[in-house]
């Protein structure tokens, strides 16, 4: 059986489904038998999920306006050259 440290080293690839079948089977066996690593795996998966679900940052209107004004100045300066 894998050690917990070996399991943790593979955790990211496991969650991203990037491990090969043989290693995946070993990792699944480990979490079936190790409650600590099951919790870590489950809560890390939820961590990624909750950040992925963050609404896309809508840029504040004033920030957008200043960016576009700066761009207009840049474009005008470039065309004047």
């Amino acid at each position: 059986m894998l050690t917990c440290k070996e399991f943790l080293a593979e955790l990211s690839d496991f969650l991203d489904e990037k491990t090969d079948i043989e290693i995946r089977a070993k990792l699944e066996k480990h979490i079936a038998e190790c409650p600590n690593c099951w919790v870590i795996c489950d809560t890390t998966k939820k961590t990624i999920s909750v950040y992925k679900g963050m609404k896309t940052c809508s840029i504040p209107d004033d920030v957008h306006s200043r960016l576009m004004a700066a761009m207009e100045r840049k474009i005008a300066a470039k065309s004047a050259k």
Binding site: L8, A9, L11, S12, L15, T43, T44, T47, Y51
Partner: peptide, 15 residues
Amino acid sequence: KSRLLRARLQLRDKL
């Protein structure tokens, strides 16, 4: 990969 694993685990701890 190494940084991502550590970031994910640290965030998991905090959350």
